[in-house]
Each structure stands twice: as C-alpha cells, then as structure tokens.
C-alpha cells in the first residue's frame, strides 16, 4: 500500500516569499499525523496543495500514490478536508450541501442523502439538517465542516485547525470522532496550534517553521528530547549553585531554590541529593519539572528562527 501522503522537495513560492521550502514528508496509511507550526509556517499551504487549492511551484506530492497534479481526480477523491475557514455554500440547507459534495464524488442521489443523514448524526447536528449554514452557531458550523469532510467516506481526512475557537465540550467530541475514524483505518492529517491536541491524538508530528520541516517524531520521542529541571529547597539559602559536575546541564538559584537542569530528573535526583548532603546542605523539599511538549515546540521553532 503506498503511503497516504508522500511529498518530495515540495516548494511553493508567492513571488519572493517561499512558503514551502523543499518539504519532504511521508505519512503512512492509517497514521494519525500532526502538522505543527506557528502562524505562517506553511501548514495550510501544504494541505491546500494536496487538494488542489494551491498550485505547487516545485517538487511533487502524492496521495495514496496518485500525483496531485497528474492524477488529481484520484488524489482528490481520496481526501476529505475540513478547512480552517468557513467555505460552505450558503444557498442550500446543510443537508443538501452535504449531498452536493457527495455527488461531486460520484455518489448517487439516494446514497448521498443516506450518507448526509449519517454524518449529520455523527457530528450531532442532524436536527438542523434543513437549516442553512448562516443560521448555525459557531460550534455547529465547525461540526458541519467535519460532516462535509466525512460524507465522501475519505481514506485521508485532513483537519486544518479543527478545534480553533471551539469550546471544551466540542473539542472533546471532535477528538472522539476523529480518534474513532482513525481506529477504523482512516488516515488523519491534523494541523493544530494546540500542542495538547497533537500530544493526545497523533502517532507522529512534523514541526514546520518558515516552510521547512524542523523535525518529524512521535510526541513521546519529542518529549524525550526535552530536559527536566530539579528544584531543591534547602534549609539554608544559597548565594550561588554548588559545583555539580557530570550530570547538570545548568544550575541556578530560582526564588531561593536551587534549580538544576538535567536530562533525566528521575535518574539524577538521588545522586543530586547525595552530592548536596555530602556538601553539607540539608534538603527540605525536592520537585522535578518535566519540559512540556509546548516548551520543546517553542524551543525548536525559536532555534529555527520562527517565533520572535
């Protein structure tokens, strides 16, 4: 089975601006893949190329082995996309909007109606099926975008910031729906600003910044790249950190506490306590703070010159 998405040195230029700079990514069939990055990193440009809303300037992109330019019909048929912006036909009731979309994918009228009802029930707005898009609440609109992406029963579901600006309940509903879909074999490509979302849902994440791939890893591996900070409260305040050679990456005094940055806080803590005791310091309290995925994300994008 070819990969769900495979890009090779994908480039998109807008005049002098290089929005995507030789992006090579591979998303396996059935994977839940996250695309993280600050605003303007090129996430939406990347997915827009896959569905034909943006023309690539160089390189290549394939969806399940179908080139998005040469075999665009096969590639687009495999994709269901829920975009960030509301781009829904306002003329028709939402039930018909979904039927139209299914129709464009070659699904007959009766089956399209059946599927429209099914996905409206899945996202919880079936009772609104005869209303037009403009009359829906913000959360319902977001649900409709997901329903439209699902009505063609896609092999690849692309979600561009699906939970941006939605309440906690809806966010959890959407997470549950897409997790179930992924468990049943649908490949999911998710772009998000919410690190927690990527950490919770994704098998792997790619961090994109300034149109370049900074890294592709599982959230767990990314977390392993982070450091821990051990905060130690001593009976007597220190003016300066003691020498902790061999394991401390850095050490400093933070609000009266000794702060020691290490690779693995759990493994190092006993040795640190012993060294402090040997140095005549009485330890009152100890706390290990793990670096969050968000911290790692910020660190990686700052290092690549992303967030200022």
């Amino acid at each position: 089975m070819p990969p769900a998405i495979e890009t090779e040195r994908l480039v998109k230029e807008y005049g002098d601006l290089r929005a995507l700079d030789e992006v090579s990514l591979r998303v396996e069939d059935g994977e839940f893949f996250g695309l993280l990055g600050p605003n303007g990193a090129g996430k939406t440009t990347f997915i827009s190329i896959l569905v034909g809303l943006v023309r690539l300037s160089g390189g290549s992109a394939r969806v399940f082995g179908h080139d998005v330019v040469d075999d665009y019909r096969e590639a687009r048929d495999a994709i269901g996309i829920a975009p960030q912006e509301f781009n829904v036909d306002r003329f028709f009731p939402i039930e018909e909007v979904l039927m139209h979309k299914a129709g464009y994918h070659g699904i007959t009228h009766d089956e399209a109606k059946e599927r429209a009802h099914e996905v409206l029930k899945t996202v919880g707005i079936y009772e609104k099926r005869e209303q037009r898009f403009d009359w829906l609440s913000g959360g319902m609109k977001r649900r409709l975008l997901l329903a439209r992406a699902l009505v063609t029963d896609p092999d690849l579901l692309i979600l561009d910031e699906p939970t941006a600006g939605v309440d906690v309940e809806l966010r959890h509903d959407l997470w549950e729906i897409v997790s179930d879909l992924n468990a049943n074999g649908t490949t999911v490509l998710l772009t998000t600003h919410y690190i927690e979302e990527a950490e919770r849902l994704c098998d792997r994440v790619a961090i994109l910044d300034h149109g370049e791939v900074v890294t592709v890893e599982s959230p767990e591996d990314l977390m392993d790249r982070g450091t821990d900070t051990i905060y130690v409260t001593l009976e007597a305040d220190l003016d300066a950190p003691p020498a902790l050679d061999g394991y401390a990456i850095d050490a400093w005094i933070d609000a009266g506490r000794l702060a020691v940055q290490v690779d693995d806080g759990g493994a190092v803590a006993p040795r640190l306590l012993r060294d402090l005791s040997d140095g005549g310091h009485e330890v009152v309290d100890l706390e290990i703070a793990r670096t969050s995925l968000e911290d790692i994300f910020v660190d990686l994008t700052e290092r690549s010159g992303g967030i200022s």
Binding site: L53, R73, R76, I79
Partner: peptide, 17 residues
C-alpha cells in the same frame, strides 16, 4: 459568489475534471 465566499472550493476539491 463562490469565489467570494470560498464555497467554490467544494467542487474544486472534488474529483471533477
């Protein structure tokens, strides 16, 4: 109007020639 409200994306992202 489809371009203005971007719902022309619906047919454009579909497998229509």
């Amino acid at each position: 109007h489809g371009r203005w409200n971007e719902y022309i994306d619906e047919p454009l992202t579909s497998p229509l020639s």
